[in-house]
Simulated scan of single mutants.
Amino acid sequence: MMSRPSTRPSVSKTFPSLGPSDVHVWFCDLLHYAEDQRVLAALLSDDEQARAARFAFDRDRQRYILSHALLRLLLSRYTHKVAGQIRFSFGRHGKPAISGMSAAAEDIQFSLSHSGPYALVAVAKGRALGADVEVLKADVDALKLARRFFAHGESALMAKCEGEARRHLFYRFWTAKEAYLKGKGVGLSLGLDRFEVLFEGGSSLAQVRWTDSGAFDPGWHIRSLALLDHLAGAVAVQGEEWELHQLESTAYSLY
């Protein structure tokens, strides 16, 4: 059993329940848990610990350990299982899923993304989803990358912007596309130019349209997330009539 660090103040918020129409997106500030790295590392599987050991830099190793341990802690609350005993299976392109548990536990779908010292964990019941978070880089050549990898309509929109507006739009598209690909479980085997993300006016909601046929993917919707100023994030969710709940891990006692 994991002992609670004596230096961490207790948090009294009740862990939120997950209904069939709920989509929970957890924002995790990994540095908040840095002092507990050794304790949290013990939650990881042998394979995860071996992968962590292969990182060349301590910073990258720490971020991997903390993000994957927090994923386990969050999933343990939804599945009512011990965090260190959760097992995963992986799809053809690496999409993880809970395995070896009851049907109710395996019905919990999730997606993990981390960038820099931050992570996102998206969770839903009985519906596929994907999440992505990115730290905005100041030196990114946004238009060059968009013209190389994105659909023509997306790069054309970016060409109409300049400076910070162009950079933010690039990351808005990038995180939306990554979230969609992760949710479908196809990874980058499906080229980023094969589909176009269409935001509804100035809103955070978007649909996906295939560039070859012009047809929409009716089974998926994307929403950009409101995060810190230097971050971009998105969640892609399968199905209709879902409600997004953005949560912060530091507001709850996870261990």
Rank of each mutant, 00 (worst) to 15 (best):
116 G>I: 02
207 Q>P: 02
151 A>C: 06
26 W>D: 07
143 L>Q: 14
42 A>C: 04
238 Q>M: 13
26 W>L: 01
19 G>H: 13
133 V>Y: 01
24 H>F: 12
87 R>S: 15
53 A>S: 10
230 H>R: 15
101 M>D: 14
11 V>G: 10
237 V>E: 08
233 G>T: 02
128 A>S: 11
155 S>E: 03
7 T>V: 09
181 L>R: 04
221 H>S: 14
114 H>C: 10
101 M>C: 13
71 L>G: 01
228 L>V: 00
166 R>I: 04
47 D>N: 15
223 R>Y: 04
181 L>A: 08
98 I>K: 02
80 H>R: 14
252 Y>S: 10
60 D>Y: 07
150 F>C: 10
221 H>C: 12
62 Q>H: 03
8 R>C: 06
206 A>T: 12
248 E>K: 13
231 L>W: 08
146 A>Q: 04
145 L>G: 11
88 F>R: 09
84 G>I: 02
44 L>S: 03
177 K>M: 10
98 I>A: 09
116 G>F: 04
30 L>F: 03
199 F>W: 14
72 R>A: 04
109 Q>M: 06
80 H>L: 12
158 M>C: 10
212 D>M: 04
215 A>D: 15
231 L>F: 08
96 P>E: 07
153 G>E: 15
7 T>Y: 14
218 P>Y: 00
68 H>K: 01
119 A>N: 10
183 G>C: 11
82 V>F: 06
77 R>S: 07
193 D>N: 15
187 G>V: 03
32 H>F: 11
217 D>K: 00
120 L>F: 06
147 R>E: 15
45 S>T: 12
119 A>D: 07
100 G>W: 05
63 R>V: 01
19 G>C: 04
14 T>A: 15
55 F>V: 03
117 P>T: 08
192 L>E: 02
62 Q>S: 13
187 G>M: 08
154 E>D: 15
186 V>A: 06
176 A>Y: 05
136 L>E: 13
147 R>D: 14
227 L>T: 14
35 E>S: 13
165 A>Q: 15
194 R>C: 10
8 R>M: 06
160 K>F: 00
140 V>H: 05
33 Y>S: 07
186 V>N: 02
40 L>S: 03
65 I>R: 04
237 V>I: 12
51 R>G: 10
119 A>G: 13
168 H>C: 06
102 S>A: 13
226 A>I: 01
71 L>V: 00
112 L>S: 08
98 I>V: 12
10 S>T: 03
157 L>D: 10
47 D>Y: 02
84 G>F: 04
211 T>A: 05
17 S>F: 02
12 S>G: 12
68 H>Y: 01
86 I>A: 04
80 H>T: 10
24 H>G: 12
183 G>S: 12
224 S>R: 01
48 E>D: 14
216 F>D: 09
192 L>V: 00
104 A>N: 08
194 R>M: 03
42 A>E: 14
160 K>Y: 01
44 L>H: 03
16 P>Q: 05
49 Q>G: 15
126 G>Y: 06
29 D>E: 15
252 Y>C: 05
131 A>W: 03
115 S>N: 07
67 S>M: 02
128 A>I: 00
41 A>D: 12
138 A>W: 00
55 F>A: 07
34 A>G: 07
131 A>D: 11
165 A>T: 14
